[in-house]
Design a protein around this nucleic acid. Structure first.
Length: 122
DNA sequence: CGGCTGACGACCT
DNA sequence: GAGGTCGCCAGCC
């Protein structure tokens, strides 16, 4: 566990600067679309931080307004554990995204593109 | 500043 | 399709 809010501090979304940017990007992903850790990382400027994007997701509190389930692994796969992946699949279906065998249907078509706007409109 | 951790990604066998 | 390895780098103590 890279960051355990239950032990390291209060469940506040805006903590580490990097996470803040990650959350902002993920919030830009509309329902029905999906993105990948690598894409978010690339949108933030460094494709190498794909991992850190995942850690940011892990640090999200349950009631956050960040659609973490729209972030999947490369190739449209659900890299989370089988159980967690199932939950993600459920949420994706609620968005109208089909998931089969831990993979997003028509991933290429549903893949969200973060224009060149590296920062949110806000 | 150093060591440890880890919702990833690409590659090889 | 499945299993193992290396590279990437932020965050925490």
């Amino acid at each position: 566990m890279p960051y355990d809010p239950a032990r390291h501090g209060p469940r506040r979304i805006v903590g580490p600067g990097f996470h803040e940017r990650v959350f902002a990007m993920v919030r830009r992903v509309p329902a029905g679309a999906v993105t990948t850790y690598g894409d978010v990382a690339a949108a933030l400027g460094s494709k190498g931080v794909a991992r850190q994007v995942g850690y940011a997701m892990a640090a999200l509190p349950e009631g956050s307004d960040v659609p973490w389930w729209r972030v999947v692994a490369a190739g449209g796969r659900l890299s989370l554990g089988a159980d967690a992946a199932d939950e993600q699949a459920r949420r994706l279906r609620r968005d109208g995204v089909e998931v089969e065998s831990q993979r997003v249907r028509g991933f290429a078509a549903r893949r969200h593109v973060f224009g060149d706007a590296a920062s949110p409109p806000g």
